[in-house]
Design a protein around this nucleic acid. Structure first.
Lengths: 192, 192
DNA sequence: CAAACAAACTAACAAGTGTTAGTTAAATTG
DNA sequence: CAATTTAACTAACACTTGTTAGTTTGTTTG
C-alpha cells in the first residue's frame, strides 16, 4: 500500500545521481532526464535543488541520532553497545546506500541546515566516544588511544555505503556480526 | 633550495579548495581568487581544470602502487606487511591531506585518465587482499571473512585524510603504531 | 641594450546553470 | 458534467561556467 510519491521518486533518483557524480556535478536537467521529464517539471514537486539535498541528508542524520540515543538508554555492556552501533549503521546504510553517499560527501553544500547537521554530527561522535571511554574505565576495552579507536571504527562504518552494494550476498545480520568481530576482536591469531 | 613553482602552487591551492567543496563546486575564479590573480591568468601555468585534478590524483595513486609493490617484494610476515601498509598510508596522507580528499572523492571526474586510475585502484586492492589471504593460510591472521577484513582496514586507512589534520599532536610514527595495534589486535580486553 | 620570456591583465565567448512564468492536457472530485 | 487539481510542457531569464585571444609589464638573457 505504501507507494512512493512523485516527490520521493525524485529524491531517491537524485540520491542515486548524487552518489555517482556528487551533488554539484548533477544538474537539474540530469535529474529531470533520469526521471523522464523536463527540468522545469521537477519544480511541481520540489522547491529547489538545495531542498533535495537537505531532505536526503537530514533525515538520515536524524535516524543515526535517534538510533544512538536508544542504544545509550539501554543497559547493555559497552562492548554490546558497540555491537548495536554496528548494527545501526549496517541497517540504515543497507536501506539507503545512495543517500549515505550524500551524507558523507555533500554535507558541506547544505547551506542553511549546515549548522544543524554539524551539531548532530558532533553530538553523535561525542556519544560514540563516550561508549568507548566508559568501556575502558569498565575494563571491557583495552586502554588504547580513545581517538584512534573511535576513528577506526567510525571510518569503517561511514564507508559502508561504498561496500554494501558490492557485496549483496551478505545479509545485514551476518555482515553486522562479522564486522563486529573484526572491529572488536581484531584479526591477529596470536595471543600476546 | 627546492622551491614550489607557480604551477605547483596552483595545484596545491586547488587541492585545498577541492577538499573543502569538492572538485565540481570549485570554479576557476575561486581558484584564481585564492591565488590572488584572475582566472585567465591560471592558464599561463596549467592547461585545464581537468589537468589539475589529474595531476593531484594520479601521482598519489602511483605513490600507493609503488609503495605497496615494495612491501610485497620484502620478506616480512604478512602481519608485518600490514603494518607497513598502515605506515605507507599514514606517510602519504600526512604529506598531502588535501590531495587525498580528491583521490577519495573526485576520482570519478578524471575522464581520460579514469580507466588508468581504476586499474591502479583495482590492482592495489587485489594486492592488499593477497596479503590478508596469505596471512590466513599461514596462520597469522584469524580466518574471518577476507572481504570484511580488507574492507574495514582499507576504509580506515582511506579516511585518514579527514582525521590527520585534526590530530596534529600525534606524529606519523606514533599514529602508525597505534593504528596498527587497534586494527590488528582489536580493542577487546577479554581473551576468548 | 635589444630580444625573449614569464606572468599577469582585460574582454569576450559559447555553453550550461537553477529557476520562474505561463500554458496545456489528463485525472479526480463535488 | 463542471470545477479543480495534478503533472507535465515550452520559453525564457539572469547568471555562472571553463576557456581563448590579445595585450601589457617587468625580468632575464644573449
Amino acid at each position: 500500500m505504501k507507494q512512493e510519491t512523485r516527490k520521493e521518486e525524485i529524491i531517491s533518483t537524485a540520491a542515486k545521481l548524487f552518489k555517482e557524480k556528487g551533488y554539484s556535478a548533477v544538474t537539474m536537467r540530469d535529474l529531470a532526464s533520469a526521471m523522464g521529464m523536463k527540468a522545469a517539471s521537477l519544480y511541481n514537486h520540489i522547491n529547489s535543488k538545495q531542498q533535495i539535498l537537505k531532505e536526503i541528508i537530514i533525515s538520515l542524520a536524524e535516524d543515526f541520532t535517534d538510533g544512538l540515543k536508544n542504544i545509550q538508554k539501554s543497559d547493555l555492556t559497552n562492548i554490546q553497545k558497540l555491537q548495536e552501533v554496528v548494527k545501526l549503521h549496517v541497517r540504515i546504510t543497507s536501506q539507503n546506500t545512495f543517500g549515505m553517499a550524500s551524507l558523507n560527501n555533500d554535507w558541506m553544500h547544505l547551506e542553511e541546515k549546515l549548522d544543524y547537521y554539524l551539531d548532530l554530527r558532533a553530538n553523535y561522535e561525542e556519544e560514540f566516544r563516550n561508549i568507548i571511554q566508559k568501556g575502558i574505565e569498565n575494563d571491557e576495552i583495552i586502554n588504547d588511544n580513545v581517538e584512534v579507536i573511535l576513528f577506526s571504527i567510525l571510518s569503517t562504518l561511514r564507508s559502508l555505503y561504498l561496500w554494501i552494494p558490492k557485496k549483496e550476498d551478505l545479509n545485514p545480520e551476518e555482515l553486522s556480526q562479522q564486522l563486529s568481530k573484526v572491529l572488536i576482536n581484531g584479526i591477529n591469531k596470536k595471543i600476546n
